[in-house]
Design a binder for these strands. Sequence first.
DNA 1: ATCTTGTCGATTGTCGACAATGTCAACCGC
DNA 2: GCGGTTGACATTGTCGACAATCGACAAGAT
Lengths: 227, 227
Amino acid sequence: MIDTPAAIALVRTASLSSLVEAEVMRLILAGDLDSGEQIKEVKIAERLGVGRSSVREALRALEAAGLVRIEKNRGAFVRVVSEAEAREMYVVREALEGLAGALLAPRISDEEITELRARVDEMETYLDPADFHRYFPLNLTFHRRIFEMTGNGRLIEIYQRLTNELHTIRRNGLLRGGGLSVSNTEHRAIVEALAARDPAAASAALKAHVAAGARRRTGHREERVVA
Amino acid sequence: MIDTPAAIALVRTASLSSLVEAEVMRLILAGDLDSGEQIKEVKIAERLGVGRSSVREALRALEAAGLVRIEKNRGAFVRVVSEAEAREMYVVREALEGLAGALLAPRISDEEITELRARVDEMETYLDPADFHRYFPLNLTFHRRIFEMTGNGRLIEIYQRLTNELHTIRRNGLLRGGGLSVSNTEHRAIVEALAARDPAAASAALKAHVAAGARRRTGHREERVVA
DNA sequence: ATCTTGTCGATTGTCGACAATGTCAACCGC
DNA sequence: GCGGTTGACATTGTCGACAATCGACAAGAT
């Protein structure tokens, strides 16, 4: 069973290496490939039924995207982000989220406000530590949607890239618990600042939220990350 | 005559495709490859004496870096950034420069202040429109140094990437003249805010400078870009 | 015992061959 | 002329082959 029109569009636009790239990225973000783990070309090639060239091109692209590190003659490895790098990234992320809030506040539509409120409400039902595996993706989507609503494609891209690189940190944060209700209270403050169409308040609320998340992370190094 | 240790280090760490990547990037940034121009694999391969695989890997990396656009079965092209994209990028850049100023102000050293002042002084000697080809690279370096001084590697990387993508816009801006002395006056204000170790003032000065540069750009679409 | 050296299997780096696709101009019927 | 078709050419997509390199292990020297 094949969706013919979709298949045509796919073959027309997607090269093998681009598909391999997407699949390897998925494996990394899903955690099927651990941080620091070596990615062997032939293994991927055989699993997906493609040649090594396609895999190598995909790995080069993923290296440029920051998800993979390639050492000559040694191989490709899932990139590990150090504590120091994570701190740097959180600083940048704070500024980006602040910008997103300032951009979105004046232009947000009533429908978008409703959507964000609904998302916060949904997260509210998963505050129990046992539900963290549900809360977590909702949280990611909430933040992503705010960026998407700004309509600034470049901002969205940069944020998404940063988010991808932080995947390890975020998933590691999944291991322990704490602070979910505080996090979601901050979410609500963000939405209300946006609903008030107040750029400065929205920017401040988002920056405070990210900074608090970073503090939760470094404070209890072994606790969950909820930013 | 070969510098043996350097040669060993090079062969040890640099793959052919990484060298091709650097060279093609140079060609694009230097304007030897025009915006929108097709980059033919064999042409590059023959010119550099390498196989097509190396060139293809390099192009995939450059695509991920945003400098090249690849259309399946049609080829690789030097990426063209539209007016709308340029506006988006300037918005992001304004936020990044503001962040850099806020980060740098509290930590800047006396030597760094001296360096920045010297750079502004040097630019002051090239305010004549005829000297724009001198002023321009100095301007780029001035801004880059501010980011480098923040010590935030990720911020530096994101800024550099944005700058690379804006190369076309900036060079096109070279075609006409105007506003150099205003631009450098803003530079001086930036340095003095940094010298005062005032994060808010430095951030504001940098944001204002970028915003003014963007306005100079869109205002006189055909004028020089000096941001 | 420790260090050096030689060897081997595994893996990556690079290349050219072949297939698939797009481009474009010559050609045809009208 | 003119729109459409066809076919040759240029270019890219993908693959497998071969060489270079790495890491581990064994053998030998000190």
